[in-house]
Simulated scan of single mutants.
Amino acid sequence: MTVQDVRSFNRFYTNVIGALDYGRRLYAPYTLTESRVLYELAHAPRTDAADLRTQLHLDAGYLTRILNKFEEDGLAERGPSDTDPRRRRITLTAAGREAAALLDERARETVGAMLDTVRAEDRPRLAEAMRTVRTILGDSDSDSDSDSDSDSDGRAPRPEDVVLREPAPGDLGWIVQRNAALYAAEYGFDADYEALVARIVADYAEDHDPHLERTWIAELDGRPVGCVMCVRDDTPGAARLRLLLVEPDARGLRIGDRLVGALVDFAREAGYREVVLWTNDILGAARRIYQRHGFVLVAEKPHHSFGQDLTGQDWRLDLHATPE
């Protein structure tokens, strides 16, 4: 590789970014840097100016001018730090959180539209190529599929920061919304998939046995970032794993592995003989998690669903088998 190769790639990617923000609709009425500051404040709600400056590599005077503008516009407030009185803590107001949410929604829609031009079978390869670039160039959070977030202390989140818990009010609705949005953005699934997820969640909400069925929510810094459901299968003695999901900005923290591990432990304690699941071959990361926990592929069949040509797969875990 030569310097010219890197410069050529930079010119190409700059054009991609410019196309995404055609007409400056994406960031308006803020600049790109102001939008990035809003994003960081929304995802690190108790950070201070010094940490923010370090994270974004901004000049102190430039960041101060941005924060002053945010305060004048009613988007942010500054106060004394909880841990160091010499520092100033920055928090978003309700208006600031609303502005950050709008920018995030625009970004998701814009990137989703770009991914619509990428064939479903090419998307895992594209994601892996992006991770490879980040890993080689020194990104410590390269397992994540989006910009790395910071937690409340201004540092990158760690696996131990993630908590698995029971669903709270609103979490079941979140499962439907995030499954629909992520699978549309990453794999081009249509509204049929959202309808399927809604039926699964509604059936669980209306009639589930807490001794035999359970849902886990993975929470990071006060927000849900992952989920999985264990429900009774039609086959006697079998539990079914459903709706495993991890938010892109929380990937790389072994959340999927922990969710599947918690489900397998629960199924074994509940007396199930086996755990079964159905997935599609394009979901490579999920399949690797299943394999690590001992699931075995037992059947696969091509099908056309959710607006895509897919290969469905049935996987099975024998809970009575002796681990190798």
Rank of each mutant, 00 (worst) to 15 (best):
T2R: 10
T2F: 08
S8G: 14
F9R: 04
F9C: 11
R11K: 09
F12G: 09
F12C: 02
L20G: 14
D21A: 12
L26A: 04
A28K: 03
P29A: 02
T31P: 11
T33H: 05
S35P: 03
L38W: 04
L38P: 07
Y39D: 12
E40I: 14
E40L: 09
H43G: 05
A44L: 08
D48P: 12
A50L: 15
D51I: 10
D51R: 06
Q55C: 13
L56P: 10
H57G: 10
D59I: 04
G61W: 10
Y62G: 14
Y62Q: 15
R65C: 12
I66K: 05
N68D: 15
K69H: 11
K69G: 08
E72T: 14
G74P: 05
A76Y: 14
E77P: 14
E77N: 06
E77K: 09
P80R: 01
R87K: 12
L92D: 08
A94N: 05
A95C: 08
A99D: 00
A100K: 06
D104P: 06
T110P: 10
R119T: 00
R119E: 07
E121N: 15
M130P: 06
G138P: 14
G138N: 02
D139W: 03
S142R: 07
D143Y: 15
S146P: 15
D147E: 15
S148N: 14
D149C: 04
S150D: 05
D151H: 11
S152C: 13
S152K: 14
D153A: 10
A156N: 15
P159H: 02
P159Q: 13
P167L: 10
P169C: 05
P169Q: 01
G170T: 12
R178Y: 09
A180F: 14
Y183T: 11
F189Q: 01
F189R: 01
Y193E: 10
Y193D: 10
E194H: 02
A195S: 14
I200G: 11
V201C: 00
D207M: 12
D207N: 13
D207S: 15
H208Q: 04
D209C: 04
L212Y: 04
E213M: 07
R214C: 07
E219T: 07
D221K: 13
R223M: 03
G226Y: 08
G226A: 07
C227Q: 05
C227K: 04
C230S: 11
V231C: 07
R232T: 08
R232H: 07
D233S: 08
D234H: 10
P236E: 04
G237S: 02
E247I: 10
E247W: 09
R251G: 03
R251Y: 08
G252S: 04
L263F: 11
L263A: 12
L263N: 08
V264E: 05
D265V: 06
F266H: 14
G271C: 09
Y272A: 01
R273N: 08
R273L: 06
R273D: 09
V275I: 12
V276H: 05
W278Y: 15
N280H: 12
D281R: 11
D281C: 13
A285S: 12
R287G: 07
R288Q: 10
G294C: 01
V298A: 07
V298I: 05
K301L: 14
H304L: 02
Q308S: 00
Q308C: 00
Q308M: 03
Q308T: 01
L310E: 01
G312S: 08
Q313K: 00
Q313I: 00
R316I: 01
L317V: 01
L319K: 00
